[in-house]
Design a protein around this nucleic acid. Structure first.
Lengths: 143, 143
DNA sequence: CGTTACGTTGACGTAAACGTAAGTTCACAT
DNA sequence: ATGTGAACTTACGTTTACGTCAACGTAACG
């Protein structure tokens, strides 16, 4: 589809509108997924007649959605985070709420980072132990 | 239930067996969840008669399960990781497979760590921008 | 003008991860 | 002997996040 990844990135950043198929190819999702996200108000593409036209805003949001999912956030969690990222807000009380919510999320994410760090360290140690065992099975009984 | 967290930790580490209720209280899960994990072969408590007795091994595994879930791993993903952590393995080919799988997971986790780092940085920047806006709303129009 | 390709809206199906209710059993106190 | 409480099994229900038709619209191509 694209000669290089950079070419795709450029397309993603510059192009004003993208069709559903272009979106699917660019993000490796199915049309069903995009329509589902729209139904859940995570995206809201414009329409030319009946067809969807995804904007840069939709692309930015989709990126965040996919990342969020990889960290075990539900779509509902993500929807709330998205509002925070959206420079379309101007209602002050609502902004304050989004801000507070954002600080909570940040604390949560930093806690996760610590956890993740621990898990990685742990797994590494375990793998090294496994490597030794595989290299010299006689050591099996050793502490 | 416990006077301090340390007391609970001590209980978790020293006690040989725990009932399903003790497990639920200690890990904030429901009985259904523990039985479900057993059915999926993520845990295998011993039995006194018909009742489940959870061992230290079960507790260690449950800890990992809950962590894994927080990072978006499926129970099936986790089941495979658990075998890797288990010092009960002696089958060599199976160990080799677990080892290889573990290295893949490690790469995956390190990639996630990078992503998480990026997300945190991003969110921080966003929050600071939000803080300024909240402090001085007139700046709304500024770049 | 037909058909091929792409897109749309329902509507129903499905896998994962439990929730929930119904009925049973077993230890133990009254 | 009987009730009370905790745990058990069996089985169907629920939520999330889509997959998978079916039936239709429309734009373009030969």
């Amino acid at each position: 589809m694209y000669a290089t990844l950079d070419e795709m990135e450029h397309f993603l950043m510059t192009e004003t509108y993208m069709t559903i198929r272009e979106m699917c190819d660019a993000f490796s999702v199915t049309p069903r997924t995009l329509r589902f996200y729209e139904a859940k108000e995570l995206l809201n593409p414009e329409r030319r007649g009946t067809k969807r036209l995804f904007t840069r805003r939709d692309r930015a949001r989709l990126k965040l959605i996919l990342k969020g999912k990889r960290f075990g956030f539900s779509l509902e969690d993500i929807r709330q985070l998205l509002d925070l990222y959206d420079p379309k807000q101007q209602n002050l009380p609502q902004m304050q709420r989004a801000y507070d919510l954002g600080r909570e999320r940040l604390a949560d994410l930093e806690a996760r980072r610590a956890e993740l760090e621990a898990i990685i360290t742990d797994l590494k140690a375990n793998l090294e132990w496994g490597a030794k065992l595989l290299a010299d099975p006689r050591k099996t009984a050793a502490e």
